[in-house]
Amino acid sequence: MAVSLLGHEVSDLCLGKPALRSLPVSATVADALAALKRSGDAYLSVWSCDHTSKINKSHLEDCRCIGKICMVDVVCFLCREDNLSCSSAALQSPLSLLLPKVPGLVRHLKPNSRLLEAIDLMLEGAQNIVIPIQSRTNPRKKLVPKPSFNSTLHNGVEFCWLTQEDVVRFLLNSIGIFSPLPGLTIESLNIIDTENIPSVYYHDPASSALTAISQSLINQTSVAVLDPQNKLVGEISPFTLACCDETVAAAIATLSAGDLMAYIDCGGPPEDLVRLVKARLEERKLGAFLDLMEEDFSYSSSSSSDEEFGFGGSGGSGKYSARMARRSEAIVCYPWSSLMAVMIQALAHRVSYVWVIEEDWSLAGIVTFAAILKVFRQHLRTQA
C-alpha cells in the first residue's frame, strides 16, 4: 500500500501551485531586491535565460532554473564589510554573486515523474524541484513570453516547484499506511542531528552568526540562540529575516544576537533598538546605511524599472513585507516525541525543522524534513 502511494506522479502534488516568478542570472542585486519587494514572494527563481533580451531568442530553448534567491541572500551580501561602506555599489553587483556555490539545490523533473524520484533527489540535497505546469485548457497552445524580468513563462511553459514541505505534508495525509512508523520516537529512529547545529550565544555579535545564517538558509534550518548554559532561548530564523527589508543588514552589523531576535520579531523593531542601530552606524561612519534607514531608497537600476518587472501595487520599503512573519521563539520537541507529532508541529508552523531539547531546555539537536524523508524512504525499502 505504501509503495503504491509513492507511485504518484509529482504533478499530483503541484495542483493549484502558482507559477514561479523569475529573474535572469544576468540581473543585478538591485533588480533582485526590487523584485522581491514588489512581488511579496519569499523566493524568486533564477534562470539561465534572459527574457528581456531582444537577441539570441534561441537561448529560450535552453531555459533552466539554476537557483533561487530571497531577501536573506541580499541581506547577507550587504552585511559584508566592504559592502556596508558602499551599499549603492554593492547593489549593482551581478545577481550571480548571491547564488550559493552548492550544486544540486534546485533540480528539474518532468510532471509524470514518480514521487519516489523526487524524494530521492531531495535526499541527494535538492531543496526545490522544478516541475512544468500542465495546462488544463489547451496543452498544445504555446504561450508567448512577456518581455519582463518577472515573466513566469519559459519557452511558452510555466513552472512551479515542489518542496520538502510539500512531500512531508503529502505523506502525513496518508500516514496510517506507514504504521507503526509514525508512533515511534525520533530518538529510536535515530534522526536527531546532534552535530550540524548552527548556533550563536545570546550576547555574541549578531554579525558572528552570518556564516551560520547563510548555511542555515541553504540547509533550510535556523540558527539557535543559546544562553551560557547552552540552553535554547530562541533562534535567528532565515524565514523571519526573509520577511524584513534590506535595512536589517544594519541591525546584524551592529547588534548582539539577542537584540537582533527582538529587532526582527513580528510587529517591527522597537524604537530603542532602531536608535541604537543608528548610533552605532554613525560611530562606524557607515552613513550609506544610515541613509537607508532614514528615507525611502530607490533600487531601480539603469537597466530596469518597476514597469519592466511588471509588478502592480504600491510596494514600499517597510520593515516587514506583506508575507507572514512569525516570532523568534523556537519550535521545539523532545527526544521522546513521536515522528508524527514532530511532522505535525513542523507543518503547522511552516518550518522544515524542529529543535530537540531536554527537559531543562538544553539543546539536544535538530530534526529536519530531510531526515524525516530518509526514514520514510528506508521504510519503503523494507516493504519492497
Results as ranks from 00 to 15, higher is better:
N112E: 13
S96N: 04
D82H: 09
P94E: 08
Q92L: 15
I133Y: 08
C76D: 08
S93L: 00
C86I: 03
G104R: 02
C86A: 15
C76F: 10
K110N: 01
A126S: 14
P111R: 02
A126Y: 12
P139V: 05
K110M: 05
N112L: 02
L105S: 04
L84C: 12
E124W: 02
S96L: 05
A89M: 05
I119M: 15
G125A: 05
Q127L: 04
E81C: 00
Q134E: 15
L99F: 10
A118P: 07
R136Y: 08
F77I: 02
R114N: 02
A90L: 00
R114K: 14
H108A: 10
L115S: 11
H108M: 03
Q134K: 10
Q127N: 09
V106D: 09
L121F: 11
R114V: 00
A90W: 08
Q92S: 15
D82Q: 12
S113Q: 07
I131Y: 02
P111T: 00
N112M: 04
Q127K: 08
V106S: 06
G104W: 01
G104H: 00
F77D: 02
S93K: 04
L116I: 07
L95R: 02
I119G: 11
S135M: 04
N128L: 05
C79M: 13
I131W: 10
S113E: 14
P132L: 03
E117R: 07
L97A: 12
L109F: 08
P111W: 06
S113L: 03
N83E: 10
A89C: 02
L78W: 13
L99D: 12
L84V: 01
C86Y: 13
E81L: 05
D120S: 14
F77N: 06
T137I: 13
V102G: 00
E81D: 15
P94Y: 07
L98G: 06
V102K: 14
V106T: 11
S93I: 00
F77A: 01
L105M: 09
S96I: 03
C79E: 07
N138F: 07
L105A: 07
T137G: 07
R107Q: 15
G104I: 01
L123F: 10
E117Y: 03
S85F: 13
S96M: 00
I129H: 05
S88V: 07
N128A: 14
M122I: 01
A89H: 10
S96G: 00
L95C: 06
H108K: 04
C86L: 12
L123D: 09
I133H: 09
K110L: 03
I119T: 12
Q92R: 15
L115I: 06
K110F: 00
S88Q: 13
C79P: 03
N128M: 08
L84M: 15
S93N: 05
E124N: 11
